[in-house]
Simulated assay, not measured.
Amino acid sequence: MVFSGQLSNGAVDWYISLWQALPSGWTLRGATKSTAGGAYKISYTPTTPIRTTFRTVIGPKFYGAPAMSPAVIGTAQDRRIVINKPAASYITLTGVAVTGYTVPAEPGLEVVLQDLLGSGKWRWLTSVKVDAKGNFRLPVPDNFPSSRTVRVVSRGVPSTAVEVSPTAWVVIKAGLNPKVYAVSASMVPKTYRSGCPVGPSSLRLLTMNYWGFDGLVHKGELILRDAAVQKMITVWTASFNAKFPIRRMQRVDVFGGSDIRAMEADNTSAFNCRQVTGNPYALSPHSYGYAIDINTVENPYLAANNVWYPSNGLSYRNRSWIRAGMLFTNSTPTKSLVGQGYFWGANWSKPDYQHFQPR
């Protein structure tokens, strides 16, 4: 709270004191000396919310002062930032956020989410503007597991007016988080057409998390036969827990239904009603929604025409040079799929290291 005024005689260097009316009497709250033209300014910061009367007087005493200002009503509210209690824990990539509100509501106020580093310093994570009701929602990075102490701080206000919330503890755990949805024809415009052995009503969209080559958690999707969904959840739960890396996992429609384009993008996918790549006379097992290809660049495929696909995966024909994302007999996806009754194409005379299909 700032109280300012001017002496009518313009006197300089006169002692001016600020007084607050309390039930016990007038109480001194601050003092200063007048400056050029008799101007003065006195600041006072209450420790609790108040609405009471103030006066300024000449001299150090209230009673018997030679002159005093008219009484003014001073109001101070209990400004604070409140954080809603976080859940005990969250799963990666579920839109984790710190929510809360300001008291009183301060629409347009910028608030900053910070987390505490091991060095004892606070790091800026993100900021938002408070809405019309004083509420805010600050996203927390949730593409990797973490446990962190956070707080919310006001920004863009004088240093004396900065508000800091109490701290909160946010725990994010890595998890597959599988979700299953029905499939419509509009969701598979490039991978399904009339005459395919399986229609959209027998397919499902399975979304889930996976570990990327960058060490972070990403969201993936597979279009599958309905009867294959539970098996795939079992397989990918084990693979996720083992942190087996996946480059990307998108429906082949993203690549215009082209198996070659999808393989060159190192895409992991399942359903695609098409002919076998390299053998236009045979219908691909992927047309039935059960077969799956994994990390297609790291696990290339020798087609019936003796061409290796994809062309950017040729260095991975050397299976003695072990690199991330390659599949072997002891790899978690391989063991899990075989355990679910799948056959691995690496065992064919023309190896298909990326491919698995039911026996």
Rank of each mutant, 00 (worst) to 15 (best):
S4H: 13
Q6C: 05
L7D: 02
G10P: 06
W14N: 05
Y15M: 09
L22H: 02
P23A: 06
K33L: 09
K41P: 00
I42T: 03
S43V: 06
S43Y: 13
P46V: 05
I50V: 15
P60T: 11
K61N: 14
G64R: 08
G64C: 07
P66I: 11
P66F: 08
M68L: 14
S69V: 05
A71W: 08
A71P: 12
I73V: 15
I73D: 10
I81N: 02
I81D: 03
T94I: 04
G95W: 06
G100M: 07
G100E: 03
P104H: 07
A105G: 06
P107S: 05
P107L: 03
V111Q: 09
L113R: 12
L117V: 00
T126M: 08
T126A: 09
S127Y: 11
V130A: 10
P141C: 03
S146F: 01
V150H: 02
V152W: 11
E163P: 00
S165D: 09
W169P: 00
V170I: 15
A182H: 13
A185W: 05
M187K: 14
P189Q: 03
P189I: 12
C196I: 11
P197N: 11
V198Y: 03
P200G: 10
L205P: 00
W211V: 09
W211P: 00
G215L: 08
L216S: 08
K219E: 12
V229D: 04
K231W: 01
V235T: 14
W236C: 02
W236E: 11
T237N: 13
N241E: 11
F244Y: 15
M249L: 13
D253P: 05
D253T: 11
V254Q: 13
G256Q: 04
G257M: 07
S258H: 12
A265F: 03
A265E: 04
N267Y: 02
A270E: 08
P280G: 03
Y288Q: 12
Y301W: 15
A304W: 04
N306D: 15
N312S: 08
S315A: 13
Y316S: 12
R317W: 09
R323M: 04
G325M: 05
P333A: 05
T334V: 15
Y342G: 01
W344V: 05
W344S: 05
